[in-house]
Design a protein around this nucleic acid. Structure first.
Lengths: 205, 205
DNA sequence: CGTGATCCTGACCAATTGGTCAAACTCTCC
DNA sequence: GGAGAGTTTGACCAATTGGTCAGGATCACG
């Protein structure tokens, strides 16, 4: 890939076309399931031209993951010590659910990666992601200690929020097969259900 | 594959070796990520010998999925109208969580399949699975109507149970990366958390 | 023990796939 | 408008992969 520092107009356009195409293909087929030909076709470029911008399939994948990781974790970062704890967490759930609706490809990209053992991002999970989760977990523990939310394991609370929200993107095929809903209708129902679930479980007795 | 009706001792042994090897490989790499060589090696057979028992890679995958589907859905089938509703559902959650611990490969096999759009089992999802879920959803609705559990959308309740429990198998790499726990310790914490989550959310006010 | 069915293998094949390269084309900027 | 950097491509390659096949080994059974 040409230097990021000074990008041509053409580079700008093609690199973002490639990343978008790669997101489409990788998220639908996983790393090994995706082929350079598919990505090239989706980006309307020839295969050698792809490899002019990225030196390998791996390089495209790596670039995609690191480009999207920040976006993906942004909602958790905004979990803040100001505000009413239960509201704060329910708001986080709603933001994550919105992301599952708006960015299902991104969700599935990470799902594919992690289901297969996170071979390309395990160091990020153990490092920066763990650090972020640790930080938010102790915030939640503080809230518990102050009696402002019910006593729950903060790590498993976070896991359950990830699981329940991302489910609607990652397992979309199953959800649609069972509900056969009109477009996106079920997200509203999911929002209502999850609000109830977390509000009742977190409100201190 | 030779007739199921009358199986040789050798067939019995090799077919189950193949299916076990295939479970290992497919669950870790997805359908396209898996290769016949890997499966053959894991089963200690030659590749042509694999293809003596199953006529294609697809055939192995199909056989695996249909063999495991019943096991996988058994816990939902046992959700029964007898007994206290909240206990009944919490018991279902615990059984699903046990399965994530005991049968993570099976969970990941289905996860891989569904994340990638369920190409091989969409008809099963729309058919028998939907029928089963519909049936249990109306049981839950009945409980709601009788005031024996809180008012919740039964479909999204079931989705959330699948999501939260299977998460520990499917996203194991992430869970381990963040918790770094001693072997399986975190399943006990998860059980406690999920019990609290569903008990409080489902107990009628 | 022999014979037919079952089981197994090495050699092979065609298609796909990630990747290379030299040559040609096109843009930018003086 | 021309020189040099930047961009694109067709032809090609080696490795991998799913699958075939003819023949040989082994087993069950009368």
């Amino acid at each position: 890939m040409p230097e990021a520092a000074a990008r041509t107009r053409i580079q700008e356009k093609n690199i973002s076309a490639i990343l978008d195409a790669a997101l489409e293909v990788f998220s639908g087929a996983g790393f090994r399931g995706a082929t350079l030909d598919q990505i090239a076709r989706a980006a309307s470029l020839s295969k050698p031209n792809l490899l002019y911008y990225f030196k390998s399939k791996e390089a495209i994948h790596r670039a995609l993951l690191s480009e999207l990781l920040d976006t993906w974790l942004a909602p958790l970062r905004t979990l803040d010590s100001g505000g009413e704890p239960v509201d704060e967490i329910v708001r986080y759930v709603m933001r994550k659910l919105d992301m599952a609706r708006e960015l299902p490809r991104e969700s599935r990209l990470f799902a594919n990666e992690i289901v297969q053992g996170a071979p390309h991002i395990f160091d990020i999970i153990e490092g920066p992601l763990k650090a972020l989760v640790d930080e938010k977990a102790s915030l939640i523990r503080k809230w518990t200690a102050e009696g402002r939310i019910a006593e729950v394991d903060p790590y498993h609370l976070i896991f359950s929020i990830w699981a329940t929200t991302q489910h609607y993107a990652d397992f979309d095929a199953q959800v649609r097969g069972i509900l056969r809903p009109e477009r996106d209708r079920h997200f509203d129902d999911a929002a209502r259900f999850l609000t109830h679930l977390y509000r009742t479980a977190l409100t201190p007795d």
